[in-house]
Design a protein around this nucleic acid. Structure first.
Lengths: 326, 326
DNA sequence: GTGAAAGCGCTAACAT
DNA sequence: ATGTTAGCGCTTTCAC
């Protein structure tokens, strides 16, 4: 345990209140006692007990963010960006991972509340009325990083459906007439719809339908092998992968069989990762701007923490990044 | 603010203590009152105020970890692994990023203490006696994720010098006789030595010296352009890059100039990233086992939080991963 | 200019 | 089997 205000008061021969006035630099206090207290405080390495402060104030100047994991680059980028944004506003960011465990996600939210975080950012894997009710009843503001999950509350994200559509149109414009949507993650382990990926698929189907081109959906776990098999048709297909890692796996599998991008097939992915920028050929992709999502989410949450503003819906633009893989 | 123990007590017509006994399920209490209280608690969505609990106990069941950022895959993997490990032991992990800002790092440590975290994991960017003293004086245990930074305390990491040496020997065994060590990050922005990278360099020099082969060090920010220039010597050099991203940049720069790996040069990197596993050619690398580092760090810290055990030094093995880039 | 007192929600030692 | 009391470290109101 470190030095406390009480100890400082005793040592300086003054009352708690006086110590506080010195520490906070406000209220009527003589320069003399003030500097004495400040000096002693420094001497004894006084550090305020933030827990006690939080108990009194009900606030903590901490914002919480829960994400599934930090495996791929998407969430790390978001989290990093949120941290930077809220730090600049005087908040600390408490980052937690739930490892794709729904109970864990709920537990973390409860823990956040129990620890008096001032607000929560989340991209929930929990679905359903019960969960929505739980979120609605939170005593602190929260921002959802998805436009389609908890539909009515404040949220920020890209329009996944539009992105799916735009990506598909881009592939079609490149001359591809046989499209495949690669998404082993359309459903989570509890067979519940993964809305983000589903919206992308919806956009894909819409664009493909509009253009009247053939399309298939590869939603199995063995999508890479399936992609290899699919090549036997020799119809120069194009794969739209709902995640950069999927694209990477597909390309690797096809390369192993001697198929070459552009020459034999086209491929494009969601998520634009730094790691791929030096790939050869460079992957065409939808950049979903994680840094911007993080920044907007952070800004929105801080704003909500300060004023009791209500719902706001921030649509972050996506961007088609041309590559050499189509 | 949610329901409190006091409110529950009032509602149930009992004292605080009785409510606590019901909630904690210990102490003498009649089944009748107990179930009444439990039922009311559920009804009113009672959630313990963890801040108050922490103020009383001085503990929080929260462990803190500070990392520079989450840009590359190294720290996300570590953090993920620490989280999994300590969660399994009943601890929550509070993740903070300092964005390569030394003051920020110190501030976060102080905040951790102020928030009663039970222990801290860190890979410090701060150096020097003052900082070491600060760390030594922490009221809670801490684990350093580097074998060479705060040398005397508990730590876990790989032997970077040995790794540098082994990697270099591997390159030499592949027939390369002109070696380059690529490390734009030997010093931080304050011109202080970045010990991890420096140890790798030391190992590199030692192995190169032993084998009597030529070597150079590329430590400038424009290492990629320098690598391109260096190719004019046409002596079939090999690059050992102290970070996967550096290798990626070098390969991209050389590819742009028409140089082909193995045929024209060899390349190898530290950090084995998922993202590169489908690269072509597959990059030879030193796998520094971030998951294992995270796991060991988590286990060690939990152990220290439980018993007042002293320093322990966990050396995590590294591994040379063969590739097609040499 | 300084201090006393109450209270945030919870825990634990000590009654009854 | 249940209640009383004191206290964790801090903030805030009100009094001197």
């Amino acid at each position: 345990m470190g030095t406390t205000i009480n100890e400082l008061a005793k040592i300086c021969g003054v009352s708690r209140t006086t110590v506080i006035r010195a520490l906070h630099g406000e209220g009527r206090i003589s320069d003399e006692t003030k500097s004495l207290i400040l000096q002693k405080a420094k001497e004894l390495h006084y550090q305020p007990n933030l827990v006690a402060r939080s108990l009194v104030s009900g606030k903590s100047m901490i914002l919480g963010i829960v994400v599934p994991d930090l495996h791929n680059q998407y969430f790390p980028k978001i989290v990093d960006s949120v941290a930077k944004t809220v730090n600049a506003e005087g908040y600390l960011l408490n980052i937690m991972v739930h490892e794709d465990d729904k109970e864990n996600e709920k537990r973390i939210i409860r823990d956040f509340i129990g620890h008096n975080v001032d607000g929560i950012i989340i991209n929930p894997i929990n679905k359903g009325a019960d969960f929505e009710k739980m979120m609605d009843n939170l005593p602190v503001p929260h921002v959802v990083m998805s436009l389609d999950d908890l539909a009515d509350g404040p949220c920020v994200g890209i329009d996944e459906t539009a992105a799916g559509e735009a990506a598909t149109e881009y592939m079609i414009s490149k001359g591809y007439r046989n499209l495949l949507f690669v998404a082993p993650s359309l459903y989570d382990r509890d067979h519940q719809l993964n809305i983000g990926h589903h919206c992308r698929l919806e956009g894909f189907e819409r664009a493909a339908g509009k253009a009247g081109v053939e399309y298939e959906i590869l939603s199995v776990q063995e999508y890479a092998q399936q992609a290899v098999k699919r090549m036997k048709k020799k119809d120069h297909p194009a794969f739209l992968c709902s995640g950069a890692m999927f694209a990477s796996e597909v390309m690797a599998a096809l390369r192993d069989k001697g198929y070459k991008p552009v020459q034999d097939y086209g491929i494009m992915s969601f998520d634009q990762l730094d790691y791929y920028k030096n790939w050869s050929p460079r992957l065409a992709a939808v950049d979903n701007h994680p840094e911007q999502i993080g920044e907007e989410a952070g800004k929105l949450l801080v704003k909500m923490c300060r004023s009791e503003d209500t719902a706001e819906r921030v649509v972050v633009p996506f961007q088609i990044v041309e590559g050499e893989s189509l």
